[in-house]
Write a protein that binds this DNA or RNA. Structure first.
Length: 203
DNA sequence: CGAGCGATTCGC
DNA sequence: CGAATCGCTCGG
């Protein structure tokens, strides 16, 4: 398959979550869940800038049972239930007590398409497997029990790698989806995706 | 302890 | 465009 090197924890520890959001594009998510392995390429991300960002769950250092993991050191998963129905997969970044996170909004399937299709209730069009944050969590087998997983350890059920030969692509920057409640912060260009990739989520 | 709501998806 | 669906947060 792909020749992958696992991203070390240091990759996630910078303060600048916007920069990390862009650097995560093109990286590979590997899941080994319920004895099924999937590989998929990150093609769309959004940055959530901790205590200073009205769109972030940890705005004003809101530290609750749900947001607790965002206050830990970067490189862990933050998975939560959205609208009572969908699990959303985030990557915690930056140092302790700097509650930044990157929402993974879309991935391109590489390996394990059969199990993804099963988990997605046999959707007809392949593009609908993973072109949205709730869809990809479902397809990859990620649910709330996989909150606070260390993504920099190869033995984890979820980890992130990069290919030895990197691919060229152009990054589009635009506003984030579904955060109108965040007032002026909703206007920040903190959504990033790979130009022309077919798996980009719908606005 | 209950009201209000959400970083979405799907089907009508 | 509206329903589905439930855990989290907050106020009383």
């Amino acid at each position: 398959m792909l020749n992958l090197n696992i991203l070390p924890q240091g990759f996630y520890l910078e303060d600048d979550v916007v920069l990390i959001s862009k650097k995560l594009l093109g990286k590979i998510i590997v899941t080994a869940i319920d004895n099924e392995v999937t590989y998929s390429r990150i093609v769309e991300t959004e940055a959530y800038n901790g205590s200073k960002d009205k769109a972030c769950h940890a705005y004003l250092h809101l530290n609750t049972p749900r947001t607790r993991v965002m206050f830990k050191e970067g490189g862990r998963s933050y998975v939560y239930l959205c609208y009572g129905l969908h699990h959303l997969f985030n990557i915690v970044t930056s140092g302790e007590n700097n509650p930044n996170a990157v929402l993974i909004r879309a991935v391109e399937p590489i390996l394990g398409l059969e199990v993804m299709k099963l988990r997605r209730n046999q959707v007809k069009k392949q593009v609908n497997l993973t072109n949205g944050p709730g869809k990809l969590a479902s397809a990859l087998g990620i649910s709330r029990e996989l909150n606070d997983v260390k993504l920099y350890e190869a033995g984890s059920p979820i980890w992130i790698g990069e290919e030895e030969c990197d691919h060229e692509f152009e990054i589009i920057e635009t506003t984030r989806v579904g955060v109108e409640y965040a007032e002026e912060d909703a206007l920040l260009p903190w959504r990033f995706y790979i130009k022309n990739n077919p798996y980009i989520s719908k606005k």
